[in-house]
Write a protein that binds this DNA or RNA. Sequence first.
DNA 1: CTTAGTGCAAAGGTTTTGCAAATTG
DNA 2: CAATTTGCAAAACCTTTGCACTAAG
Lengths: 149, 149
Amino acid sequence: MKEEQFRFIHYLKSKGLKLTSARKTVLTAFLRSEGHLSAEDLLAAAKKIDPGLGQATVFRTLKLLADAGLAQDACQDEGPRRYEHVYKHAHHDHLLCIGCGKLIEFCHPEIEKAQTEIFKEFGFQATGHRLELRGLCADCAGKSGKAND
Amino acid sequence: MKEEQFRFIHYLKSKGLKLTSARKTVLTAFLRSEGHLSAEDLLAAAKKIDPGLGQATVFRTLKLLADAGLAQDACQDEGPRRYEHVYKHAHHDHLLCIGCGKLIEFCHPEIEKAQTEIFKEFGFQATGHRLELRGLCADCAGKSGKAND
DNA sequence: CTTAGTGCAAAGGTTTTGCAAATTG
DNA sequence: CAATTTGCAAAACCTTTGCACTAAG
């Protein structure tokens, strides 16, 4: 069994919650997913496994996944809230091209280190962070940016 | 005249858009505001200046402000989208306590520097970034965090 | 058997859109 | 004057909630 599954089950038990087939379905669909997905995406994916699943259950389960530390808000500027794996994936930050929407994931040790310092400086106990850099990628910058619109 | 006002007017001209009294009202209300405000907050503030203003106009103008580089999505996890000044305020990042909601704004030169490196490394032309650290502040962490729940 | 979870559909909150009238350049 | 913008209200969109039924422990 995958570690994420185990962790989710353990989380449910610790909260006195039940491991239902609907939750298993949503978990499976979520773990199969790649990148950033919205609740709607997850519902669609989960319905491929169990067509009878309701969207309310997906929203409810997504909250549990976030609470269990498996899912994290990926925080897009537009449209619905999106989530991504947080448990297995090593931590990464996002670099977004505002021209073409290209999304690059990166990890920069110095930034991580500096963040730790900041938590210390303000007496905080860290639980997470999110960093998104925005700009124009080489392609889009080359195309003269925003001449017409 | 404030530089922001000038910038917004310039932006409108460059796009062939009109400087209407409604837009002036929203701009004024926005520039007067402090911290992070939602569209609803901005509507309320703008209505104090011009009670006849419609909420659609606020949403539309807020997009223009963002496009003009004056407003920026402050990206809360919950509730409505919130915006903040981006132009005059020196850049800052956010440190949020998930226990009591306390929000600290800070600025860390090394992080800024590292970000510049990343933009370079991926051949991006920077336009902005957003960093939010989350954790428990000293008060909340002291209160035994989440022993019971 | 008791309690929590489910799907549905309706409600809730936020943002967008169509339109006729008003305003700007 | 032509073209954009406005306010309104309705629609669209995303998420949550109430409820009767089902399923897990």
